[in-house]
Amino acid sequence: MHANAFAIRRDILRGKAVTFIARAIPAKIAGKIVTYCHDVTPPIPLEAANLVCAEVIMYVMRYRSVDWLPVSCLLALASCAHQDLTPTHHPNRALVAEARSLATSLEAGVWPGLATGNFRVLLVDGDTEELLCFANEPPSGFLRNSYDEKLGCSVATRSRVFDPTFLATFPLDDGISTIVIGTPEATGKSNEEWVVTVLHEHFHQLQFACPNYFQRTLDLGLSNGDQTGMWMLNYPFPYQDEDTADAARELGVSLAEALQADDRDLAESLAKFLTARRSFAATIGAADLRYFDFQAWQEGTARYVERKAAAAWTAHSATRSSENDRLISALNAVDIRQDGRVAFYELGAGEAALLDRVNPAWADGYCEGDLSLHSRFER
């Protein structure tokens, strides 16, 4: 055994750093570690040093031996044996952790299964992107370099690729749906707004996991050959048509009235809403109506979940009232000529909130049937 092996073994098996790194990096086969270590020449970057230390620690903890380690790897270990490997809590990572915790604690009252499934986040921060809470290995181009105890997740980084103002969810190059989001400062949101926006985007991850989601969206016949999904944003809906805009405004007003109706008047208010919806549908073509229904199902329900999460985040009734008031105000001010597709977020959220009153179990079959909320009023 190398003369310094016993001293290094004591260092790498002692202290909190061992527990931290052992969880952060899965064990690799000894041959891969040896090859990597042979390629390392001190001094080395902290990220690389952490990786070497982590892989060797995993091996040593499993086999209780460092006999096989080459001299170059021992030198690499020596170069980082005294590095501070205690995990740090990046403030924006802490907000992601808060969103994940909220999804768990609010699941029963907000949405069934909200805390389940993929919750991978790409945090765009300055010139760096951090991939948080990925399963197994990060995609090509990312360097796994730390573990965040508050998140309970490994973290991988790369140089920035996406715009720091992004607020979107889509598959990365490895095909896994990922929340791509800038910091609260870059996106112009308070910390509280940012956290519930993460939940909005996580709901999209749940939608994308619905059976045959992507094929079903193509089956709507709205993509015009686009395979990238950009048609969902750029579909040529007649937002500027005066009759359509007026009908959309009346649709919003009818939804607001139905949501505020007492139980005695609910049936009448529901009928008025359905009449307003038929009037809106009469101003557009069949494909346009499918697009509206899809946006209400997808973005509207995500906005509904976002608002419910914000209202349920605190026990204060004033907060719940505030979120309801915001929805009612937004519905009474629908303007598709000015807001375009974003107006459908509020109309869809209003439909979802109304469904809570007339069909309380509607969320249980959300992934089933057509990509529309309207049909659920008929069940």
Results as ranks from 00 to 15, higher is better:
279 S>Y: 05
279 S>H: 13
279 S>M: 09
280 F>V: 05
282 A>Q: 10
282 A>E: 13
282 A>D: 15
284 I>V: 15
284 I>E: 05
285 G>T: 12
286 A>C: 03
286 A>Q: 08
287 A>W: 00
287 A>P: 00
287 A>E: 06
290 R>Q: 07
290 R>K: 15
292 F>D: 03
293 D>Y: 04
293 D>M: 01
294 F>C: 04
295 Q>T: 15
297 W>Q: 03
297 W>H: 08
298 Q>E: 12
298 Q>C: 07
298 Q>H: 13
299 E>M: 03
300 G>K: 08
301 T>C: 11
302 A>Y: 05
302 A>S: 15
302 A>I: 02
303 R>N: 11
303 R>K: 14
306 E>L: 05
307 R>M: 15
307 R>F: 02
308 K>L: 15
309 A>T: 15
310 A>T: 05
310 A>Y: 04
310 A>P: 02
310 A>K: 05
311 A>W: 04
311 A>Y: 01
313 W>D: 04
313 W>C: 04
314 T>F: 06
314 T>Q: 10
314 T>I: 05
315 A>Y: 07
316 H>F: 11
317 S>N: 11
317 S>L: 12
317 S>R: 13
317 S>M: 07
318 A>T: 14
318 A>E: 15
318 A>H: 10
318 A>V: 09
319 T>W: 04
321 S>M: 12
321 S>C: 08
321 S>P: 00
321 S>R: 14
322 S>G: 04
323 E>S: 06
324 N>D: 12
324 N>R: 15
326 R>Q: 10
326 R>P: 00
328 I>N: 04
329 S>I: 00
